[in-house]
Design a binder for these strands. Structure first.
Lengths: 189, 189
DNA sequence: CCCATGTGAGACATTCCTGTCTCACACTGG
DNA sequence: CCAGTGTGAGACAGGAATGTCTCACATGGG
């Protein structure tokens, strides 16, 4: 076989569609998820044993994409501000997925994948800490809060784009500029 | 009767407890909600006909609290930056509720209350627009995005507090400072 | 004191979702 | 052309949640 049949379902695309729907309607049924993904409930069930398995797969995909973005952004290189810019740019394709997972905490019933998020959180917090140490970032905003705020802004950005309130092309700029520079106008740095 | 019996359930408190639980676990059952609110499922059902009615009531409460905060913050008075500070301070008690409602879009199946949010959105966007016009806020970040970002940061702040990653007393400071000033350190304004 | 009100606990039927199965069909590759 | 593979549609039982009901009990007011 080697290559998957063209007829076969694009597993990652199904997961993205699922995340897109579940972000708007967390109580969506498996049938609704299947419809949103353009497949039948039977097929959805062939790929994911149940709702738990689906969410688990969503988490795994989200973690994988986040870590890929982290690597691609080279957070340890150069100025912290530039690293943040690279990070947001790299993470943009996964924004919808992150927006879902950020609100889908499920009380951490399955602790398995939690260490994945812990690693990502740690990497982000370390980036902000490095920026503080180098004097780029202010010290009254804790790295933990900046990390949390970044998640929140990514979610808000993804939502604003899907709602049509922000142009897709402005996604990175809006998030980075607000996170780094804030809303207040300045003369010159 | 005049005053409600001491035995009676505190309706708003039930709604807050419900929001608190549903924020963490959107698929919680009515029984779980009742337990979280410290009442029986029967009593919960006496006050809210069903899940839909519960969410509707949550929205109504959220809208009411937001509008109360908007009025208390006097958004039209003085500098826009000061108005933002007042707003976040006033809205803090409702942050948990807002965090839930912001992620609970339910595809707007019930469009009734939507105008309530539209009014609030308009008031916030107007505040940011006023700040841009007065030269306080930068013009490359649209009022619509600043509004969305404020929601996102309130949600992130509420979550960070409940998770213990940010001190409750720092809530307003963290949000306002990041929203207005951003993460980058400045010499002096 | 006793009645009215509101609650908790539990039973109950109903509805909905889930998970599994079968079968027919479409496409692919040999 | 012909198997092999994967899908869609539908049926089905099992289970979970919902919505409604009854009854006993606690409290507070008249």
């Amino acid at each position: 076989m080697g290559y998957r049949s063209l007829m076969a379902v694009d597993r990652d695309q199904v997961l993205r569609d699922a995340a897109s729907l579940l972000t708007r309607k967390a109580t969506a049924t498996m049938d609704e998820v299947a419809r949103a993904a353009g497949i039948s409930r039977a097929t959805l069930h062939r790929h994911f044993a149940g709702r738990d398995a689906l969410v688990l797969a969503l988490e795994a995909l989200g973690i994988a994409e986040c870590e890929a973005a982290l690597n691609a952004a080279r957070l340890d290189d150069g100025a912290a501000t530039d690293a943040v810019r690279r990070l947001v740019r790299e993470i943009e394709p996964a924004a919808g997925l992150i927006a879902f997972l950020y609100t889908e905490n499920q009380l951490f019933e399955g602790e398995e994948q939690n260490e994945g998020w812990a690693r990502i959180d740690a990497a982000l917090a370390e980036l902000f800490r490095r920026g503080q140490e180098s004097g780029e970032f202010r010290i009254d905003l804790t790295p933990a809060w900046l990390t949390e705020a970044l998640y929140g802004l990514i979610g808000a950005g993804a939502w604003a784009v899907t709602e049509g309130r922000v142009a897709r092309n402005d996604f990175t700029h809006m998030i980075v500029e607000l996170l780094l520079g804030g809303a207040v106008r300045r003369e010159e740095p």
